[in-house]
Design a binder for these strands. Structure first.
Lengths: 249, 249
DNA sequence: CGAAGGCTTGACGGTATTCAAGCATAGTGG
DNA sequence: CCACTATGCTTGAATACCGTCAAGCCTTCG
């Protein structure tokens, strides 16, 4: 609406609006909706519990969000990460309860848009509908890739794949610098993502770093030293993976 | 109208279009499109290879279809089954290649609708759009439940969950009779679905049947003898699971 | 009747989990 | 400034679970 609006959407951590969000719809209406529903969540805060009723669409503007499910005995599986520019609607087939827990892993700015409002927005913009469908498709592709490795992959394969996936997603939003990036996860959480115990995550990553394939420091700043070899271990073609899990901009 | 739509998507034999129905009626249009694109596929035929270009939406009218991905060394993971009434669009984020292999597991009748045609159909009917979104949501819910168990579950849990999922899905389309149903899968394929080797599927199912929780014959006709205990092992509440993975009708 | 495909079971081995202890770091309050 | 705690990483040892290999059996089908 005014330049303040644009500025408001731009976070201090992001030099620019996540390109995928701005590509959603050129109209100012989206920005208005996002801005008016924008909220900040501190790291670790839980936006929604598994099974809780949910009638909103979440647009992540900045920060990391995790979608997860837990077994009765407290084991947790992270189903997907939601990164800046992503849109998720956690509702199940019945369209009113969330099938997953939603948790901010870092400080996150999120537009929590009521489904009714969102539906109106979609109604008005075919671009936005296309964009949403693209985002859903890429989430499905990512989940499929991970399911393949959860079912059939070794620990090395799962870790290598997980890191490449995050590398590509972070690259797409300008958060990778010289093959170096940060993930706001503990080894425990990386294990919940890749289906491994935290102990085995540690062993596996140490093995990879001893082989000079990557480096990690205690802040979980990761540098990929040998992408070729990582891709080999993960069993992916990086270029192909990129087109299938990253929405075209 | 909605129930007509479902009937159209699910019926074994396409209902005749009454001549009195207006050609502008969206459900009538749907029927017309489905009928004109309907094709039959024999068991084992592969409709689409992983990575092949794909510009169609698949509406399964009858029979079983599997979506799968494979590793370079030939290990396969079945990502999801597509059953009568389901709609899938296998395209990845780039909207033109399929991320998965599509295979008929039994003789199947499928309407292969070009995306353009499908988009027009959707444009004209908000009910159909809602329906499609519901079907996508339930597929996501199912995949999430399975990911949780692929990552954190034991073999018993995976098998019990898989069978309950199929039991509920088949129930919803009237293919379960007295807790008895048929799945057109080998143990190998059930293993590809649940992330187990065929040998371990065999052991696990035998263990379950020795415990009098279920019976299986050589035709993969399964009877659930103790749903309570199955649900316990699978770690699910059957009623809750049903609402989250089965589209409301 | 032979071949092919699928199920079943045993034996063995490998991979990942669990348990446990030690270490490092950051934050807190005396 | 220094305990003191909490949290997370690291490593070893023991164990459990599941995969692989292999053989035997059954059914189906040409």
């Amino acid at each position: 609406m005014n330049s303040n609006l644009i500025a408001a959407l731009r976070s201090d951590h992001m030099p620019r609006l996540p390109s995928s969000v701005s590509a959603l719809d050129p109209s100012a209406q989206l920005e208005k909706v996002l801005r008016s529903h924008r909220r900040g969540f501190s790291a670790g805060s839980i936006l929604k519990l598994e099974g809780e009723s949910s009638v909103a669409t979440y647009c992540v503007l900045d920060g990391w969000v995790a979608l997860s499910k837990s077994t009765q005995d407290g084991q947790r599986q992270i189903i997907d990460f939601v990164l800046p520019g992503d849109i998720i609607n956690p509702s199940s087939a019945n369209k009113c309860t969330s099938t997953m827990q939603i948790e901010a892993l870092s400080y996150a700015r999120i537009a929590v848009v009521p489904n009714v409002t969102w539906a109106n927005l979609i109604e008005g913009g075919p671009m936005l509908r296309m964009r949403e469908s693209q985002i859903i498709s890429s989430a499905l592709s990512r989940m499929s890739e991970r399911m393949l490795r959860l079912g059939k992959g070794t620990a090395e394969m799962r870790i290598a794949y997980s890191l490449i996936e995050l590398y590509l997603r972070l690259s797409a939003i300008g958060k990778v610098d010289n093959d170096r990036f940060h993930i706001p996860l503990t080894q425990q959480q990386l294990g919940e993502f890749s289906g491994l115990s935290s102990v085995h995550v540690c062993r596996t990553m140490r093995r990879l770093s001893r082989k000079n394939i990557l480096t990690v420091n205690s802040q979980m700043d990761i540098t990929i030293l040998d992408l070729q070899e990582m891709a080999e271990i993960a069993g992916v073609d990086v270029a192909v993976l990129n087109t299938s899990i990253i929405p075209t901009q």
